[in-house]
Write a protein that binds this DNA or RNA. Structure first.
Lengths: 236, 236
DNA sequence: CAGTGGTCTAGACCACCAC
DNA sequence: TGGTGGTCTAGACCACTGG
């Protein structure tokens, strides 16, 4: 059966491949409905999805214009610095797990993001991201044990999100983030090789599941000269 | 006639007023459809709008839970620092127009945000935001003269966006933003009272109209200790 | 004028959740 | 089991754009 997800993925692929190039118009909604054998409403839902992703812009009376071909890599944390800069500039990169322990969530740190957070048991991971053998990010990650009972060192060293979504079937829905700048802490100075006068960019986040349960908090501290964040926002 | 916008504004208001409090469920979709005398599809469109805004989260089989009561003030530039911090902490604030001239757009500055930008004529505004008489932000704003022919000093000192939307009828659709950190430039040092060793947080943006025309670029440079950015992101 | 997107309806069937 | 949201349809009318 041709369903919404199929049409969506197909259009995304065609846009990223340039079949529908940036600056051109997609086929009309009726045309698409015919092609995919669905109703126009279904097509409209798909297009509204593409609008949300920042790939197209609808223009009344004209059509749907492609305004961006790239898919954002990180839906929840569009930090360009690490993955993208590394990929774009062909740099070596590595992640080192510093520690993995059980703690209470340091609630105060995330107060401004979610005042309702309770002090709960968490897996506390600290890791360092290296680019060209130079440490650029310190990651503090707190995963709620009530949602993720066990977190092995092996998993922590790999992609944690794949484990959450694919293995555990967690459905991640949304996140709140905050970006600010601070002078380097003692730990920053030690792990990133900074002086007390230098600054780090701090990204805090709280991530929630579909049932609105928070399940993970992160605090990542970036070398200021290696930080870049991109965003796409629509007028509401 | 009861239309989508009416229902939307009504629900937003009821949420912000606490009629539907954070952590509670909205009435069901059928219930809402009955109450407002619309079809369920219309209600669903409205709810999906609230989801986008980060006000509710839909939970299958249960209902639509309110997860946030506040409306974000700045749909396009959620910089908490200036307006919100000022409001929250009851600080004095003031904006000073430094200069208003006609130039060519410094394309290179915005290259990474939009590679297709052309060098065009712009109104170049420089302004400084003061909090408690202390300068905290330098704003460089470039407004395309092709879209906004005239920009008086009087308007520039007031709210520029109101002028664009209400007076000129411009329909602002979306924006691309980038946040990074740099050492203070000569101008930063002078206007913000910084030393060359101190850093500023730089926010660049390009704003587009509904017909995908870019019409404004901004570069705002923030004292690092007064910068804070909040974001709400959904899993795509 | 014909084509495009914007809005809306009335009804259908499904998966999920709670009792 | 009954209520909730998720998906989809077929058709209607409107406002806007372009030639």
């Amino acid at each position: 059966m041709t369903t919404r997800q199929n049409v969506l993925h197909d259009l995304i692929q065609q846009i990223s491949q340039g079949t529908y190039a940036k600056g051109t118009l997609l086929p009309g909604e009726n045309e698409l409905a015919d092609r995919y054998g669905t109703s126009r409403n279904t097509i409209r839902k798909v297009l509204s999805d593409l609008v949300q992703r920042g790939l197209i812009q609808k223009i009344n009376g004209k059509g749907s214009m492609v305004i961006e071909q790239q898919q954002f890599v990180f839906p929840l944390s569009n930090i360009v610095s690490y993955k993208e800069i590394v990929a774009e500039q062909h740099l070596d990169n590595e992640t080192q797990l510093v520690s993995l322990t059980e703690k209470k969530l340091p609630v105060a740190v995330f107060n401004e993001l979610d005042a309702d957070l309770q002090s709960v048991d968490v897996h506390a991971m600290v890791s360092v991201h290296l680019v060209n053998a130079k440490p650029v990010i310190i990651d503090h990650e707190y995963v709620f044990t009530s949602v993720v009972p066990t977190l092995s060192q092996h998993v922590a060293e790999d992609s944690v999100y794949e484990y959450f979504e694919d293995e555990l079937g967690l459905k991640i829905a949304y996140a709140r983030k905050e970006i600010s700048a601070e002078y380097a802490s003692a730990e920053d100075q030690q792990l990133l090789g900074l002086t007390p006068q230098q600054m780090v960019v701090v990204v805090k986040s709280v991530t929630y599941l579909e049932d609105t349960t928070p399940f993970e908090c992160t605090e990542s501290r970036h070398r200021a000269d290696m930080f870049k964040f991109r965003d796409f926002a629509r007028r509401l």
